[in-house]
Design a protein around this nucleic acid. Structure first.
Lengths: 170, 170
DNA sequence: CGTGAAAACGTGACGCA
DNA sequence: TGCGTCACGTTTTCACG
């Protein structure tokens, strides 16, 4: 359950195409990959069962939702003990402004990716939700100019038929 | 095209449900939201056309793909001029290990989220792809212990009928 | 925004290399 | 064992009220 799974070229092509558009029909997918629909479905359900495919996610534009400003917050939680960090993480995750949270090795314990409406909103968020908490020892804020989601994360496939994709911001 | 879009409660419910499982059938979605399937489809295509929905993405498990170790690399690019940073970003984005790249305001110009097989692979990546480049002045590596993708990113709906949801990862 | 019908799709069972 | 062909129930999707 923990280790990696063998992926043949067909699996790789399927995953690559699904990453570009996860809502493509299995029939189109099969014809593009060059196998029969049933085979394609078979591969996908196997990939799903083996845990390679975790799920399908909708990608939304934060700017269109009134969250045109994004930032990364480096947070030190002191003392860094389980009783404190558990609730801290849960609280941060529940914020509508949070996009993702990383627990890191290093002097900065957590990195939080947030999306807010403007700098006033960011200030409010930092002051009210972070520095106001007793266990938060320090917060360092860095604005995000631009952001790119990177390719398929797939192992270097033997064939090279993929195309670039971009995801900019304001 | 740049500013935010008005979303009524139906849109919000649709987006919230689709974020949990983007491959739910529109029929189920419609019945859960409480509208007819055609209306549901209408809303979705409108959201897609207006740019709120950027696309559908597959979530894969990096560990299952032989990339069980993740890290954040803070990179200083000096001198920080367009002629240098453009190719730099493109090169980094093209790495199969790269998950996302942030251009930041602050002393660290870029933050790169990478997924590698092990520490040896990480060392190779840092040495061969980052510090080996002339424009890279400094690289700071932080390992990721754990990571959480956060909720719906949806605006604080005027009504409070939403239910808790979680999205964890090893 | 809902209804209904036609077209397309998902998803098994079955046979072939 | 794995893949392709076929067929059925379901879903998507469009024109219309």
């Amino acid at each position: 359950m923990a280790d990696s799974v063998v992926l043949d070229p067909v699996d790789l092509r399927i995953l690559r195409l699904l990453q570009n558009d996860a809502r493509i029909t299995y029939r189109d997918l099969a014809s593009r990959v060059g196998v029969a629909p049933s085979t394609c479905l078979d591969r996908i359900s196997r990939l799903r069962r083996s845990g390679v495919i975790l799920g399908h996610q909708l990608r939304l534009d934060p700017a269109k939702l009134g969250r045109g400003l994004e930032a990364l917050l480096s947070v030190q939680v002191r003392p860094h003990r389980r009783e404190l960090v558990g609730p801290f993480v849960e609280r941060i995750r529940a914020l509508p402004e949070s996009r993702s949270v990383f627990h890191l090795a290093g002097p900065d314990d957590y990195l939080v990716h947030v999306a807010v409406t403007d700098t006033a909103d960011l200030q409010r968020l930092v002051l009210d939700e972070f520095t106001a908490r007793r266990e938060v020892a320090r917060v360092e804020t860095r604005l995000i100019f631009q952001q790119w989601e990177c390719g398929p994360l797939l192992p270097p496939g033997p064939e090279a038929d993929d195309q670039g994709e971009s995801s900019g911001q304001s």
